[in-house]
Simulated scan of single mutants.
Amino acid sequence: MRVEPEAIVGVSDPAKNGVAGYIGSGISLVIPNIRVRVVLFGWWLDELEEVAFTSNENCSSSSIIIPVDDFTIMTSKRVVIETRFLEEKALYKICIKQKARSIPNPPKMSYVIIDDTHTFLSTNIPSRKYYLPFSLQIIIISIFLVLSGLFSGLNLGLMSLTPQELMLIQKSGSQTERKYAEAIIPIRKSGNLLLCSLLIGNVCVNSAISILMDDLTSGVVALIASSAGIVVFGEIFPQSLCVKKGLAVGARTIWITRFFMMLTFPLAYPISRALDCILGDEVVSYDRKRLMELIKLTTRNEAGLAEELKIAVGAMEISDKTVNDVMTKIEDVFMLPDTTILNAKTVTEILNMGYTRIPIYSGNDRHNVVSLLFVKDLALMDPLVISLFNPL
């Protein structure tokens, strides 16, 4: 029988947990005491009588000897066998024995060792190597989760505040709010640069979390764990916090933001300049109508501001008012006919109305206004004279 010296050995695992991979120059790694399937490829393999695996160069004394009757598959080019390997520090080598020749008094056939590293098997599973020490890698993942949450929260908290709103807070806010606004305004004026820096930092740390998590666990577990961590700790919680406390969080972490703006500057600056050229400057203006609505919204539930609100809104609305908007219908105007007698009762009624001028009409026609009565003139007249003064 001829045996191809460059034989190829394939190892598979019916239970899906026995093959650990490969090391070196194609040496197959198998987990001890787990049943695995070994596949031999070569020439004239249908003439094999036994296959053994030895770790001490002595095939006859091997504890793993598989006779031809135990072969799972056997052809001239492929032999499939299933067996278990004991834990050994040395490498397992394949020994094959040819069937006896069909001649009178055939010679006794002996084992032949296939001394090719591609056919070696090892049960010495090396310890798993991580990118970093396990504890350090866990700490780094935790730090990256915090940074992911910070970038996500600041992206919402800072970018939702326009420079005009920050300057408004700086001038009219509380002492603490003014301090926070003063710290944020310098970086917020470079809106697109800040946005690009936060997004690039967020993408980088999220990618690093996925890579480090995949190194610690399997692919599916890493996908679930990293996705859950990023969604909960990197998106939901920080954004809900920064919606309400974005000004305080942005001011207290301003040094971290500045550091990452400098770190990502070579990549973020060209992108931000392109956005500035395409989209233009960030400008938010408030016209009279917007200011009036803003006053109404912000003071709607505040007590004691009703009169001040009316004055402020009235002053801003005056330029848009017409005579038709402010005039009183003639049916509702307090008027007196020219035949009215100015007695004490009439004067009292006039004074109680609170008007300074009273229109006077003639001929029972309210549209025929002939004069005006100035209420102040009544103060200079003697009540007795008034009572004797009949027509106006």
Rank of each mutant, 00 (worst) to 15 (best):
T257Q: 11
L247N: 05
L263N: 06
S272N: 08
A303N: 13
V283S: 00
W255G: 06
K245P: 01
L216V: 02
P238S: 08
G246N: 03
R258W: 07
A303M: 13
A225P: 05
D287Q: 08
V220H: 13
A268M: 09
R300D: 12
E282F: 05
P238K: 06
E302S: 13
M292F: 04
T298V: 10
S227M: 15
K289T: 12
K289A: 14
A225V: 15
V220Y: 14
A222T: 06
L305H: 03
M261H: 08
A225H: 05
V249C: 04
V249E: 05
A251R: 00
I236R: 09
N301S: 15
K296T: 07
L263P: 03
S226I: 05
D281A: 11
G304L: 06
T217F: 15
G229L: 03
V232T: 13
I271N: 02
M261Q: 07
A268G: 07
N301F: 13
E293C: 08
V243Y: 07
K296Q: 14
L241T: 01
A222G: 15
L241F: 02
Y269S: 10
G229S: 09
L223Q: 05
I230N: 03
D214M: 11
P266W: 09
E235Q: 04
A268L: 05
L223G: 00
T298W: 01
V284H: 14
D214S: 14
E235C: 02
R273F: 11
Y269I: 05
